[in-house]
Nucleic acid binder design. Sequence first.
RNA 1: GCGACCGUAGCUCAGUUGGUUAGAGCAUCGGUUUGUGGUACCGAGGGUCGCGGGUUCAAGUCCCGUCGGUCGCCCCA
Length: 414
Amino acid sequence: MSNKVQAVRGTQDMLGEAAERFHTVVAAFDKVRRLYGFQRVEVPMFEATSVFARSLGETTDVVSKEMYTFEDRGGDSLTLRPEFTAGISRAYLSEGWQQHAPLKVATWGAAFRYERPQKGRFRQFHQLDAEILGAGESAADVELIAFGAQLLAELGVGDKVELQLNTLGDPETRDAWRTALVAHFEKHRYDLSEESRTRLDKNPLRILDSKEHKDFPIVDSAPVVDDFLTSEAADFFAAVTAGLDEAGVKWTRSPRLVRGLDYYRHTAFEFTTEDLGAQSAVLAGGRYDGLIESMGGPHTPAVGWAAGIERLALLIDAPAPLGIDAALVPLGERAERAATGIAAKLRRAGLACEMAYRGNMKKRMQKANASGARYAIIIGDDELDRGQAAVKNLASGEQQSIAFDRIAEALRGA
RNA sequence: GCGACCGUAGCUCAGUUGGUUAGAGCAUCGGUUUGUGGUACCGAGGGUCGCGGGUUCAAGUCCCGUCGGUCGCCCCA
């Protein structure tokens, strides 16, 4: 390829099946989102850098090395959104959406992270996002997770994913557990893998899902969150699991599941799959009761999740190719004019049809066939004189004459 | 940020131990059929072998760099 122009690394151009897969995912999301009463929300694709830096945690990978940050002409530091939650939380505050609490919103779109691209991972990627703001009740967690589960079922990937569920407890729980974990791992620092030793300094909770074999015994003997749960936190988690059972959502307790971003509390969950190579999470989220407060707002409990559209698009079965009802095959200029009118009428009647811009009859018939059209509507001088089109069933080869003004009903009846 | 593999027509690929005019299938266009597709046959167009440098009488083939892709690590949707 001697092309000088090329797509930026980690971005993608989609045509045909790839694009259909993408929009199949979005369409399913939009359908299920209505069933659960989540209203559509739109937020900017970029925010002041501090919106993300502060909420996600300064030391997280996303903030410390993956953000697309730039200075605008006014000298302000802006960042392309690496996720949706922070921006939606900011909007909740700056737009006064507190008056609508509890607020259930959904959105989808592009997000940006500077990472090495690989299977199911891109620099510009796309997420579905659902949030419930201003609700501290476990019922919100249950409804949100059930929404995610139904979406996955709707997409036909329900049996390819498993819901991993955990609780990080309230701040008191989390702090106590974290302290105990650090003490435990510190005791075995020398036996830990190199990766985990750096985690110990940066993000000790992450050691829990280490893939290094030499870490396994140390991780297995590590203190579990259950031992540190306050009675309130334990009750809350019990209510969430009971609700999920009630809603018929299958889940697996995953005591080592920890989420990477700093703002999570209580419920943490991930729908995981084995089918995406190194990327196992397709839809993940949790409760972030402290986030809005940390942005300077009132204490506002909230839960949410995000799902990778590309990842789901890889998982679903290929969408059926979009066939059309008819292809117009005009012979000559006079027929082309008449066919233009007929095509417009058919389309207004709700029938999908195509007419090639150029080509002789053979060419147009070939295109009609390639388009997957059920019928070819052939119009030449003879047909114009008689006021009837030759309508050919492209599957059976049968052909019959039909008056111009009766084509729509003939196609629909067939 | 780290590692492995890869980079030849629009697409998928072949190209022998380095050796003349770099091939195939599909796609495109034209013809066999100047009003009948899906099958068949004939033909045509299309390539600075990602880019740059080096070794050599000679590089698509070997070496280095660079860009890009794929997969993995880290982390995440």
